[in-house]
Write a protein that binds this DNA or RNA. Structure first.
Lengths: 233, 233
DNA sequence: TGTATTTGTGTCTTAGTGACACTATTAACT
DNA sequence: AGTTAATAGTGTCACTAAGACACAAATACA
């Protein structure tokens, strides 16, 4: 309470960092949420995040990454600033600014550390609609998802939310989960070849029909962006 | 000095908002800069910006727009959050976060208000290379320009840095100034038609050869994004 | 052996850009 | 008045990557 009052005195906004972590689990797109243990919104789910620690962090990227490492014990394969959300009404404690990052992480890395006292959960994106989420975090998730959708249409970014070995079918499922539309399998295969980002392994796996070729990311490969977006069909 | 100390005590970063304002003037792309009147970097050029005023602003967008209105007496036609820049070394006064917006504005609106004591100038982008700019603002300008370049390749956004009446040739020049590559006139015309954003006026203007058709933005039109990026030729 | 199912290929169509020749219209110059 | 340079605008073929979809290949299971 006192600190709140003091901050207002300096006319500086409350500043924090939040993360929207995506992964592909059980054939659906998930977001990592934690349960609040204090007011406001005590007991509600929210996005993980924390305040910037001027002593520990050189910049806000480090703050966000520190938060992710504390949750999953792994560095995300894709990590990018989304945008800042701000306003006088989004947090009852006063004018607040939340700098939000979003990231894609392999489902293998989900050793969601139970070290913290908090409850942590990979939440299905479709389940979030009907869930009470703290602050404006539902809106933030929607924005992050929208950004991810755009990128999925003209880049290979969706590979980063898969396990390190995967089939074209799994990649297709991930893309379709992200953009919520079906895509042409053929178009995806063309892109996989054109990107040169993946290499086929000497291994195939069962998939209900013909065995499926396994792929993995080539080492030291950069994300490829295409000049054309996929459409829907 | 005291306030600096107090802020450190609360471990909260210095927070401010900055604007990268672009316009097309004298056939070249310009950025609005102001001259610093106090330490640090006194006398150097910097991006316009200011601190969030919790009393005046509902959110950071309003802070940025308030800053723009104070400088140009006009609302920009395109205005968007770029990203936050942060770090312990970018401002000698301590850990700082700058939330940067970028905007495109018509050169007609350049009634750069001399009301403020500051010196204000539209600086040619090519001149910025060899100029001493305060803080990391040169880097910020480069990032904003890069973002603008991307968008220029797949949208009609460059129209927003032109006067309200313009020719295809002027639009072509603006795009080429933004992306620093020549484009095909024919491709541009095809996009102008496909977008449906512009309407031809009953007027033509001199241009050194055949008279050029004047266009303007249709009212109530939304920015069109294409599925394909332009390449270079 | 036959059928359902999924993987993967072949190929025609479609859409939008690149390239570039060609026409149109104006000013300036002789 | 005629010629030329310059810019505006059109016509059209080539190229590329995506959409659509038929079809072949491989596996499980009845």
């Amino acid at each position: 309470m006192t600190s709140e009052h003091d901050l207002t005195e300096f006319h500086t906004p409350l500043f924090s960092v939040n993360n929207v972590l995506f992964t592909m689990l059980q054939d659906s797109l998930k977001v990592l949420l934690v349960k609040r243990t204090s007011a406001p919104f005590k007991g509600r789910w929210e996005l993980p995040g924390e305040c910037v620690d001027i002593e520990l962090d050189d910049n806000t990227d480090m703050s966000a990454l520190r938060n992710i490492k504390a949750l999953t014990a792994a560095t995300p394969q894709f990590f990018e600033q989304l945008q800042a959300f701000s306003g006088i009404n989004r947090d009852p404690r006063g004018f607040s600014v939340s700098l939000v990052y979003y990231a894609l992480i392999s489902p293998q890395c989900i050793a969601v550390k139970p070290s913290a006292v908090e409850e942590v959960k990979w939440m299905d994106l479709s389940a979030i609609q009907d869930l009470a989420i703290a602050f404006d975090h539902k809106q933030i998730i929607a924005t992050a998802r929208s950004q991810l959708q755009q990128k999925a249409l003209y880049s290979m970014i969706p590979v980063y939310c898969l396990a390190d070995q995967f089939t074209i079918g799994q990649l297709k499922a991930a893309i379709e989960a992200i953009i919520a539309k079906p895509i042409q399998r053929k178009s995806l295969i063309r892109r996989v070849e054109a990107s040169g980002m993946l290499e086929a392994l000497d291994e195939k796996v069962k998939s209900g029909g013909r065995l499926a070729q396994l792929y993995r990311l080539k080492s030291d490969t950069e994300t490829v962006y295409f000049e054309r977006s996929l459409s829907f069909g």
